[in-house]
Structures are given as structure tokens and as C-alpha cells.
Amino acid sequence: MTLRLVVADDQDLVRGAFVTILAAESDIDVVAEAADGAEAVEAVRAHQPDVLLLDVRMPGMDGIEATRIVTAESPTRVLMLTTFDQDDYVYGALRAGASGFLLKDVRRKELIDAVRIVAAGESLLAPAVTTRLIDTMVRGRTAAAPIGLDRLTARERETLWLLGRGLSNPEIAAELVVSDHTVKTHVSSVLAKLGLRDRAQAVVAAYESGLIVAGGQPTRGALGARPPSRE
């Protein structure tokens, strides 16, 4: 099955390079290009791609605002590009609904794999980087009220806490001593009950709801009566 892709970057040479690399793949169809956030939004509206590869910093409407609009209006998944390895840009992209992020100096194979991963419904988040950037952004803040956490069972809260720490499904299964299938069920339930798009948003929600404080530890009492299986 061919996945449909829009590529948005204000630098012609960079955008052209990405288009050339990705269009050469038999399972990827680059349906449109855009030079800024507003053009990216219009391209998504016109072509309904599976993935929008989007630069975070562009003139006019930037990538973060474009991401907010695209994820609110469509099922298109956003993969952010940046030359800036700065936590605030990445955090803003995740909060806006992006499913992952890449630096522009990404290698050819990593770029192609990333587009396929996001198109398949997964999030492209390196656990160590994710935990560090979220910690950085919430450190020193007063945690928000844990709105929505009361809808979760104790095991689902536990699952959300582990998602917030950046663990993969197999790692969560090992922590909870359950099967991968059971973890997938818990993750799906957490996303549905909290109205989250994907596990990238679950990472942000785990912190912003107050379930996790800086350092990755659970807020006292937030997990319910039973503590996590392991620290």
C-alpha cells in the first residue's frame, strides 16, 4: 500500500532533497510540497496525505501552528523537522499533536524509516530524549490538575506513567509482567479515555496532568492503591 506524503520546508534545496529521497521509494507518493505553514495546511486539506513532513521554523505560520491546525482537522500524522536540537521546539511540536521529530541532518535510511513508522500509526520518540525534554519543560512548574485521570483504572494509570517515562510496549509488558497484547489493550484504552491522538501526546499528558513530576517519578497517590510493579 502506497502512503501519501506532503513535504513542507521553506528552504527549496532542503525540501527538494527530501522529496527526491522519499519519492524514490516505491511505497511513498509525495503528493505535494509547501514552502510555509499556511501552504502546508492547504496542501493537507487538498490532498489528505497520511503524513506531513514539516519544518518547525518557517516564515509566516510556523510548523507548530500548522501542526495544531492539521491535527485538529484531519487524521494526517505530522513528523517534525528541525535544525534546532532545542527542547522548547520539540515540546511545542508534541503538544501541538506531532507524532515525532527528526533533526534535518538525519540519514537517508532514518528519514525513510521515520516516515513509514509514523504512517503506520506509531510515534517516533527516542525515550531518553523524550524524558529529558519533558522534564526540562515541566521542571519548576506547578502540575496541572489531573483532569481525566479519574477515568482510568489503576492499571491504566500505571500504563500512562510508564508511557510518560518513554517505555516501549515490550518494556511496559516487562514492568507490569503482562503480555504485549495486554499492554496494547491498556494503551488503546488510555488514549481513548483521555482523548489522546497517540503515545506522543500520552507522554505530554502524563506530565501535564500531574501524574509524573520532573525526574519521572509518580505524583504521590496518583497511581491509586497499587504502586508500579518495579521502580
Score class of each variant (00 low, 15 high):
Thr71Ile: 04
Arg197Phe: 00
Tyr89Asp: 11
Ala72Val: 01
Leu103Met: 12
Lys104Leu: 03
Arg155Tyr: 06
Ser123Pro: 04
Gln201Pro: 01
Val138Lys: 05
Ile112Asp: 08
Ser99Ile: 04
Arg141Cys: 12
Ala144His: 14
Leu160Asp: 11
Ala202Gln: 02
Phe18Gly: 01
Met1Ser: 14
Lys193Ile: 09
Ala206Phe: 01
Val56Leu: 12
Pro75Glu: 14
Gly164Val: 06
Ala192Val: 08
Ser229Phe: 12
Asp150Phe: 01
Val178His: 05
Ser189Ala: 11
Gln217Leu: 13
Asp62Gln: 04
Arg15Cys: 06
Pro218Asp: 05
Gly215Arg: 03
Arg15Trp: 01
Val78Lys: 03
Arg157Lys: 11
Gln86Val: 15
Val129Thr: 15
Val203Cys: 15
Arg199Trp: 00
Arg199Glu: 13
Trp161Ser: 13
Ala222Glu: 07
Phe101Ala: 04
Pro146Cys: 10
Arg68Gly: 10
Arg155Ile: 12
Ala17Thr: 15
Val90Asn: 00
Asp29Ala: 12
Ala173Trp: 10
Ala46Tyr: 02
Ser209Thr: 13
Ala66Ser: 11
Arg4Lys: 12
Val177Gln: 13
Glu156Tyr: 06
Val129Asp: 11
Ala202Glu: 05
Leu124Met: 07
Lys184Ser: 13
Ala205His: 10
Ser168Met: 10
Leu196Met: 08
Gly224Ser: 09
Ser209Glu: 08
Gly224Met: 08
Gly37Met: 05
Ser74Gly: 06
Leu160Gln: 09
Arg197His: 06
Ser179Ile: 01
Gly63Ala: 03
Ala145His: 14
Asp50Ser: 04
Thr82Gln: 04
Glu231Lys: 11
Ala119Pro: 01
